[in-house]
Simulated scan of single mutants.
Amino acid sequence: MTAPATGEPGRPTAAGEDAELLEIALEAARKAGALLRDGRPADLGVAATKSSPIDVVTEMDIAAEKLITSFIGRLRPQDGFLGEEGASSEGTSGIRWVIDPLDGTVNYLYGLPSWSVSIAAERDGEAVVGVVEAPMRRETYQAVKGGGAYVEGVRAHCRPAPDMEHALIATGFSYLRERRVAMAEVVKVLLPQVRDIRRGGSAAIDLADVGCGRLDAYYERGLHPWDMAAGALFAREAGALTGGRPGLAPAEELTVAAPPGLFEPLQQMLEDLGAWHD
């Protein structure tokens, strides 16, 4: 199936296969978001040790990924997959779906609203379609390479770059004790030099918020491809720059997103602070 070109008000411009991929990603993300929202037990508690509440979240994660891969696999059986919960196949079409079925697991466990479903379609290793579904925000972020970024029918644009001291910057922290110590040292130096720092808990939403102008910048160490693929494309299509260490693409070592003019000094500051290593 090949969808016609789209680009009507409120939608990214997409033609041919990209239009098809966008429609599939939107529907898969919507279905998974509804499953997670409606399937979360109202009395889900937070355990002090590994026990049933964490198992419930793990089961929801796996169920959402299975829903996504099954839905896409029926429509595009030749495509490959890379998912946080273990979906991995090469495929033969040149398209690979990069999936985080529940980005912001701890938020979900605690009943906080900042969690999302992130789905990106890569062609020959490059993201061409990205969808981030945030059910508790009632927002869907969608982007197509070269076709723009939109949220709820509105074209998204990142903020003009402020100077560093007026920048609102988001980040995230590892759950590895040693790495958290190193991350805290970076924040200790960075915090007095910026407006403030936020920790939202969902990398995909943080990247989308940069694209929507709700944050000036975002950085984090330790992201996997499924954490950033859709959100980073959205941020770029909204006018932000994304990268890792200077001269490198976003990677597990470091991911940075910010508008031109802020991106460069922030990236260099993070490099100088050693934000990319423990």
Score class of each variant (00 low, 15 high):
Glu23Asp: 15
Ala14Arg: 06
Thr49Ser: 12
Lys50Phe: 01
Arg40Tyr: 08
Asp43Asn: 14
Asp38Thr: 01
Leu26Asn: 01
Ala32Trp: 00
Gly10Ala: 06
Ala48Tyr: 08
Arg37Pro: 00
Ala14Phe: 07
Arg30Val: 00
Ala15Tyr: 09
Ala19Phe: 08
Thr49Asp: 14
Gly10Tyr: 09
Arg11Asp: 09
Gly7Trp: 06
Ala48Val: 08
Ala14His: 01
Ala47Pro: 11
Arg37Leu: 06
Lys31Asn: 10
Glu27Asp: 14
Val46Leu: 13
Thr6Asp: 04
Ile24Phe: 01
Thr49Met: 13
Thr49Ala: 13
Ala14Val: 09
Glu23Gln: 13
Leu22Trp: 05
Pro4Cys: 05
Asp18Phe: 11
Thr49Asn: 14
Gly33Phe: 01
Glu20Gly: 14
Glu27Thr: 13
Gly7Asn: 12
Pro12Tyr: 02
Gly7Pro: 04
Glu20Ser: 15
Ala42Trp: 09
Thr6Glu: 09
Ala19Thr: 10
Pro4His: 00
Glu27Ile: 09
Gly45Glu: 10
Glu27Asn: 10
Thr49Leu: 15
Pro9Ser: 02
Ala34Phe: 03
Leu44Pro: 04
Gly7Ala: 12
Thr49Phe: 14
Asp38Val: 00
Glu17Trp: 15
Ala28Val: 05
Gly33Thr: 06
Val46Asn: 04
Glu17Ser: 08
Gly33Tyr: 04
Asp38His: 10
Arg30Gln: 13
Ser51Phe: 00
Glu20Val: 10
Glu27Leu: 13
Leu35Arg: 01
Leu36Ser: 03
Ala47Asn: 12
Ser51Ala: 15
Gly10Arg: 11
Arg30Ser: 14
Asp18Tyr: 13
Leu36Glu: 00
Ala29Val: 07
Ala5Gly: 03
Ala29Trp: 05
Val46His: 03
Ser51Gly: 11
Val46Ser: 07
Ala25Thr: 01
Ala47Leu: 11
Glu17Thr: 12
Gly7Ile: 12
Glu17Phe: 15
Leu35Tyr: 08
Lys50His: 11
Gly39Asn: 13
Lys31His: 06
Ala48Lys: 13
Lys31Thr: 07
Glu20Asp: 10
Thr13Ala: 13
Glu8Asp: 07
Gly16Gln: 15
Ala42Arg: 15
Ala32His: 04
Ala25Ile: 04
Gly33Cys: 03
Gly10Pro: 10
Arg37His: 06
Arg40Phe: 05
Leu26Ile: 04
Asp18Lys: 14
Gly10Asn: 14
Lys50Ala: 05
Ala34Gly: 04
Pro41Lys: 11
Ala28Lys: 03
Ala14Tyr: 05
Gly39Gln: 15
Ala14Trp: 03
Ala28Ser: 12
Ala29Thr: 03
Arg40Gly: 11
Arg30Pro: 04
Thr13Val: 15
Glu23Val: 07
Glu17Asn: 05
Leu36Tyr: 01
Gly7Thr: 07
Gly45Ser: 15
